[in-house]
Design a protein around this nucleic acid. Structure first.
Length: 432
DNA sequence: TCTGGGGTCCTAGGACCC
DNA sequence: TCTGGGGTCCTAGGACCC
């Protein structure tokens, strides 16, 4: 059944073009027109590419050492500057939210907008949004509009792929034959929710394009694949079945992990790193007003190095659940000590907080533990967070997280741009 | 030499219950 | 020889996303 256009459901997806690269260009305009990539943490691999970099044949996720020779052809690389990207994202999302009452921020550079009830055409709204973001922030975007989130994503993909659309593609406002043609032009692996594992399996069933998937029987898809694939097909057929999330739910797990800049062998270094990661995770936990009931700590050697591999991991209960940095660190360090093996070259470690629950929820006491209720209003943590908010991150730390500036576990970030919008002493200098 | 980090959802299978 | 039926909960692993 075809619902498209028959109801007022109209969803827009606004997406930044090569978002991280675009942010770098905002603070360094001379990068415009140059092949530019942004590297992952540790300067490991490419996580964002400008069009010019794509034209050089650089793939998403390409390891830096394997593309580094392209510097001689003008390639510029930047270390990931998430303080900058996060701040630019906040600004962009605020602008987008001014165009309609219901907004869902989907990722750092993507936002859904409910256009239901608005009287302007999709083209008018889409171009207005693009113009505002370009003028106020200097960021390029594309807008896709459809009767479901999946169709809006697909429309956005078309807007990015075909320059003739001038950045806006409205699938709600075209004839059904043209819409079918657009879906037929989209390979099935470009559909949101269909990844590299599912695509070959779908093709084996003669489903090659988005149109093929839209015309498949959801019940058959459900039994052959999963309910997710069936829902995707329904969405492509114009039936909006994915939930709308105006208010983001609190995270159900909080992970903080890093690959190390250099291999780590000493237990002391590992304990420092884990203290640091645990502090970060605890800050995130408190920011969303939650307690953790379980903590997992892990460390491992590098998959890419020959020789014997080692990985250790411990899952530890927090009784009672807690959001205190000092308590979480004590538990994490005890877990790590138990798994640590001398002589191993550790390449990565991390901490994951699980069994996350709201601070003010009904609390299930442990029959065999001292009756100490979780204390969300702990004044030590409150003071810690406030001081760090006011005087800068890590002004106050737990002592076990203190480290030298040349600690081996610190990330390599050799090509970092300034945090030009969030840090007073890194503001851009303008000479007149 | 050098290969990221942080999430979500779904499913199958096992343990356990009556 | 013959060995129920129906349910819940948990977990690990797989798939996806940016």
């Amino acid at each position: 059944m075809d619902h498209q256009g028959s109801t007022s459901t109209r969803i827009a997806l606004i997406d930044g073009n090569s978002f991280y690269c675009a942010c770098e260009r905002v603070i360094q305009p001379a990068l415009a027109g140059k092949p530019l990539i942004v590297l992952s943490n540790n300067d490991g691999c490419a996580i964002a590419r400008s069009n010019e970099a794509k034209a050089l044949g650089i793939r998403m996720g390409a390891p830096w050492f394997s593309i580094r020779h392209l510097e001689s052809r003008g390639l510029v690389a930047r270390s990931a500057n998430f303080a900058l990207y996060g701040d630019m994202s906040d600004r962009m999302m605020t602008l987008i939210g001014q165009f309609a009452p219901h907004q869902e921020i989907y990722s750092i550079d993507e936002s859904f907008l409910d256009l239901g009830g608005l009287s302007d055409t999709g083209q008018e709204i889409g171009q207005a949004i693009r113009h505002r973001i370009a003028q106020w922030l200097g960021l390029p975007t594309c807008v896709g509009i459809g009767a479901s989130k999946t169709l809006a994503k697909l429309a956005n993909h078309l807007a990015k792929t075909y320059p003739v659309l001038q950045g806006v593609c409205d699938l709600c406002d075209i004839a059904p034959e043209r819409r079918d043609r657009a879906l037929a032009l989209t390979p099935v692996d470009a559909v949101w929710g269909i990844g590299r594992r599912l695509a070959p399996r779908l093709r084996a069933q003669d489903i090659h394009t988005a149109l093929d998937l839209a015309r498949s029987n959801p019940r058959d898809l459900r039994s052959a694949f999963s309910s997710t694939v069936a829902d995707t097909a329904r969405e492509l057929a114009g039936e909006a079945c994915l939930d709308w999330q105006d208010h983001p739910e609190p995270r159900r797990q909080i992970l903080c992990s890093r690959s190390f800049g250099q291999p780590v062998t000493r237990l002391d270094d590992l304990l420092q790193a884990i203290s640091r990661f645990t502090s970060r995770a605890a800050e995130k936990l408190r920011r969303q007003g939650s307690l953790a009931g379980t903590l997992q700590v892990f460390a491992r050697t590098s998959y890419f190095k020959p020789g014997r591999q080692h990985a250790c991991s411990a899952v530890l209960p927090l009784t009672p659940p807690s959001d205190r940095t000092d308590r979480l660190i004590a538990v994490a360090l005890a877990g790590l000590r138990g798994g640590y093996r001398p002589g191993c070259n550790y390449a990565k470690a991390g901490v994951c907080l699980m069994d996350i629950q709201p601070t003010h929820a009904q609390f299930q006491y442990d029959l065999f533990a001292p009756a100490e209720p979780p204390r969300a209003d702990d004044r030590t943590m409150l003071a810690l967070d406030r001081i760090n908010a006011r005087f800068g991150a890590d002004t106050l730390q737990i002592a076990s997280a203190l480290h030298d500036h040349d600690a081996p576990w610190l990330m390599r970030q050799e090509r970092m741009s300034p945090r030009a919008t969030t840090c007073w002493n890194e503001l851009i200098e303008i000479r007149c």
